[in-house]
Every structure is written in C-alpha cells, then in structure tokens.
C-alpha cells in the first residue's frame, strides 16, 4: 500500500489487552499505532498533543472515565473516528460512548482480523450498529412524558425504519434489499443517527440529549 497507514491512538488500562490490541492493529498493514496510554491523564495528554486518525478507548480507567476522553477527542480532533473498546458491547457502555461522540465499538476479545476489519470499515465510512443498540435507540425515541424538544434534530421515519430492521437482526445488505435502497444509503442513515445522537457541545452533551428526550434520566 502506497499511502501512509492510518494512525491509531490506543487507550486501555489493562496491559495485556493493550498489548493484544496493539498487536492486532500493527498486524494490519494499513494501520499503525501512533500512541498508547494506560490512564486518563496520559490519554488526555496524548489527545491534546498528538495527531491521529482513530481513537480506540476503553471507558474504565483507574483515574477516571473514558467518556471524558472521547468528548475531548471529538472536540479537539473532529475528523478523527472514535471507537470504544468493550467486553460485552452492552448498551450502557456503547450508548454513552456514542452520545459522547464515538461512532463504533470494538470487542476486546475480538481476534486480530476482526479488529483490523472493524477499524477499516469505520474509516471507509461504515457505521456498525448492533441489534441491541438499535433497539435501545428505538426505545428512547418512543414518545414519553417529556416530549422531545422541537428544536432537537428529529429522527426521520426512514431512519427509524432502518433502526427497526437492525433491531430485528437484519444486515445492512438485507435492509437495503427490503427497503429497495443501496447499502450506502443504509450506512448513511446509520451515520446520521449517530450524528444526531452525539451533540457538538461536549460539556452539555448528556444534559442536552436528555432535553431532546433521547436519554432517559437514570
């Protein structure tokens, strides 16, 4: 490959997992690790100082929460993609990360090829979303007592339709066939949903999202 490999910034507090991820990234010729950190403090310093194309970040650090790092990255490097590293891809972790600005997740135990593929897919414009996450997004969209703020970006019927099919377990290709649209269109719908979920003003993200009726107060 003639072009420069994509620069990956790796933030993970568990040394062996960090090593595993680093190896998986380095294994792929199109990717290279440009920095790695095992704490929030170090991670923040790297985000502030360096340049990177993809941020891979865990959420739980001994000295803080990774959500803060994801917001910071979205603020300082809006172009960089962000993926959250998770063991179970459970809705609580992933949705919070998406709201903070992440646009995908990586399973910690994924094998080397899965990790590389996932990162590349994201860089190529793909937007992975699991059925479970889609279902949770749909649940949040259901009209509830505090009506969504009319100023908030509403989900279009098409976007909702796509989300529903994702939640039922259909792949993007199957959805494209069912709705008679291209796979790219499906992907762009998903990206749009991500964008609507993540709010630009990082500090107010959660507050605003709950104002829009997207997040249930816990």
């Amino acid at each position: 490959m003639g072009t420069e490999p994509h620069r990956i910034l790796l933030l993970e507090d568990e040394p062996s997992t960090l090593e595993r991820l680093r190896r998986a990234v380095e294994d792929h010729p199109a990717l290279s690790v440009c920095g790695q950190a095992m704490s929030c403090r170090e991670g923040e310093a790297l985000i502030r100082s360096g340049e990177y194309d993809v941020l891979l970040s865990d959420l739980g650090f001994p000295d803080g929460n990774g959500i803060h790092l994801i917001r910071l990255s979205r603020q300082l490097h809006p172009q960089a993609e962000i993926m959250v590293i998770t063991v179970f891809a459970d809705e609580r972790h992933v949705l919070t990360a998406i709201e903070a600005g992440a646009s995908g997740y990586l399973l910690k135990d994924g094998d080397s090829s899965y990790i590389g593929e996932s990162i590349l897919q994201l860089l190529a414009g793909g937007s992975p979303i699991s059925a479970s996450i889609a279902r949770h997004l749909l649940q949040r969209l259901k009209p509830k007592a505090p009506q969504p703020n009319p100023d908030a970006p509403p989900m279009t019927p098409r976007e909702q339709q796509v989300l529903e099919l994702v939640a039922k377990g259909f792949s993007y290709a199957e959805i494209a066939t069912t709705l008679n649209i291209s796979v790219n269109t499906v992907t762009s719908h998903i990206k749009q949903i991500y964008r609507k979920l993540s709010v630009n003003s990082r500090g107010e993200a959660v507050f605003e999202a709950s104002q829009m009726g997207l997040i249930r107060p816990l």
Partner: peptide, 14 residues
C-alpha cells in the same frame, strides 16, 4: 423473539 435472535446473530455472525 426476533430482537432476541438478532442479538445472537450479532454475536455469531463474525
């Protein structure tokens, strides 16, 4: 049931 099986698909398909 479809939502439940969808989660299985997400896990198993890769």
């Amino acid at each position: 049931l479809l939502s439940l099986l969808a989660m299985l698909r997400d896990r198993i398909e890769p």
